[in-house]
Design a protein around this nucleic acid. Structure first.
Lengths: 298, 298
DNA sequence: GCAAAAGTGTTTCGGATACACCCATGC
DNA sequence: GCATGGGTGTATCCGAAACACTTTTGC
């Protein structure tokens, strides 16, 4: 990064809001692929665009980088402004830099993966200006820009991160049942696990602690609730594992779903073909699920 | 990424080389953390800066993004221009976006991890304009900008990638001995493995194929040479596993090392403190070393 | 001969797998 | 009652770990 001449922004030229450079520069934006978990399926938070390119289409929340912030601060700010979410897990994921990816011109996008707890789901409803809605990750509408590609690659990356870090807790409330934890692993890895083996693996790994918290209501036998074991988890994860002032357990009620009819889009972007819907899902071994512990203990 | 007004670059304003935008934009660069392996240690390729900020200091090769290329193309181009390397493994790693990270102004850096085979080591010598030298990854000189931080985080990331992808082959020639493969895993993970267990794990995983190629020379008993098993490896890795026109086996001779005296830098940035140099390295289990196979078979 | 690295095999042990029964709740 | 999900236990088996001797080269 050093072959060109040093460039100083020769600010306020003649008119206001004119920034002059000796070499062309791209706009830089951050876009967030926001994953959620509703107790049974992986969800994605999208916003309806209110601006000109792709107006009315669904898109990833995001916005342009400002000179006084890092790209992480930018992502967190846009998340707050557009979806009212704060204190969510955020991780850089990939830069998209195809010169033609944005019809407005030369715009790079830093894609982030964001993970939202169920207790934060309804925060979005509080922001009246918001046009954000949760979609099932397998049933997405057509997306603006190259966002469909970004989402697909983010889902693949999510599997990788799940091996490297205990991010499953960032998709769960402070208190959760082992069934929920298992389901998170299942929907991300797109498989199923033997309930008894999974339970034992989790407990022997020591990544959870049983609590005395009682579930508020349950359709069946009420599960025991656990929480993440902070002693074993990376310190920088801890902030994202739970909030402080949330109810101990809410059973995924009153979700804000996408009520719109987006069938008018001609090209559907469902990832799962209909024919294979009833194919029996092969059960996977639980081996290696918590490999991330190896990264901490060295 | 969409809340601002669309901005068109209002090119050639009055004078040539003047680019005017309504909002400030950062310069975007790509910097490469280039890893090599000399048969016993992890190496890092650095260049001596010939320009003004940090002139004479060592730095990561890199350069500014141009409007007609992706960030990957930029990284590959700068690598070629500054170190004469081509067809190396390149992977996005992290964006560094601290507004103050570059004294010249607002410069983002997309950091890449690059992996170089021993057969490409001496390519660098062919480029007379090059000021590139290989350093031991544990004995680095002070670096320009925030490059020391980038290198440290890249080494951590390298461990993660090693779990996710068969990148060890990208640090080896087309033909290699199992001892070399083991050493790559050892220097990256900073541990040792039982030779017999490692050998068996590799062969049972099926990621290598024995060949009839004979090593050119050996100080001890000559090892059998293997090559990566393409049937089991991801297709997009294949291009980076070996070159076509290289000698079948060269035993790491005549390396281009850094001959300079950089002791004049007052602050040393060695990562390993001297006191712990002789501490016995604990042997690690080979379990999970080739977990990346799980990502391909699904 | 000797040092250094390469090649090979067996025993053992732990942990993952496969599998079945009972429990608590809402309806 | 009964459907649904939660909790617990065991026999088995595979694979990883631990470990030693021989072989081949350069010097």
């Amino acid at each position: 990064m050093n072959n060109q001449q040093p460039e100083q922004p020769k600010q306020p030229d003649t008119k206001p809001n004119r920034y002059v450079y000796r070499y062309p520069r791209p706009s830089v934006a951050s876009d967030c692929v926001i994953f959620g978990f509703d107790g049974s399926a992986l969800k994605l938070l999208l916003i309806e665009r209110g601006q000109k390119p792709f107006l009315g289409a669904w898109a990833l929340p995001g916005g342009f980088l400002r000179p006084d912030e890092t790209i992480e601060e930018c992502a967190a700010r846009e998340l707050r402004e557009e979806t009212n979410l704060r204190n969510v897990y955020l991780e850089q994921f990939k830069v998209y830099s195809d010169p033609d990816r944005d019809p407005r011109g030369w715009v790079l996008s830093m894609a982030f993966i964001a993970l939202v707890r169920p207790s934060d789901y309804n925060v979005i409803a509080g922001d009246d200006a918001s046009k954000a809605f949760w979609f099932k990750a397998d049933e997405l509408p057509p997306l603006a820009f190259d966002h469909h590609r970004i989402v697909c690659e983010a889902r693949e990356r999510l599997k990788e991160i799940l091996v490297l870090k205990p991010i499953a807790f960032s998709l769960l409330n402070k208190y959760f049942s082992l069934g929920e934890l298992q389901k998170v692993y299942e929907v991300i890895n797109d498989t199923t696990y033997d309930r008894r083996n999974f339970t034992r693996s989790v407990q022997e790994a020591g990544i959870v602690e049983a609590t005395d918290v009682k579930p508020q209501k349950a359709r069946n036998r009420p599960p025991r609730l656990y929480r993440a074991n902070h002693n074993l988890l990376a310190p920088d994860m801890e902030d994202f594992i739970y909030d402080s002032d949330i109810p101990p357990y809410d059973q995924y009620v009153e979700r804000v779903e996408a009520p719109r009819d987006w069938s008018l889009f001609n090209e559907s972007q469902k990832t799962e073909p209909e024919e294979l819907k009833d194919a029996p899902i092969k059960e996977s071994p639980t081996k290696g699920l918590f490999n991330f512990l190896g990264f901490f203990n060295k």
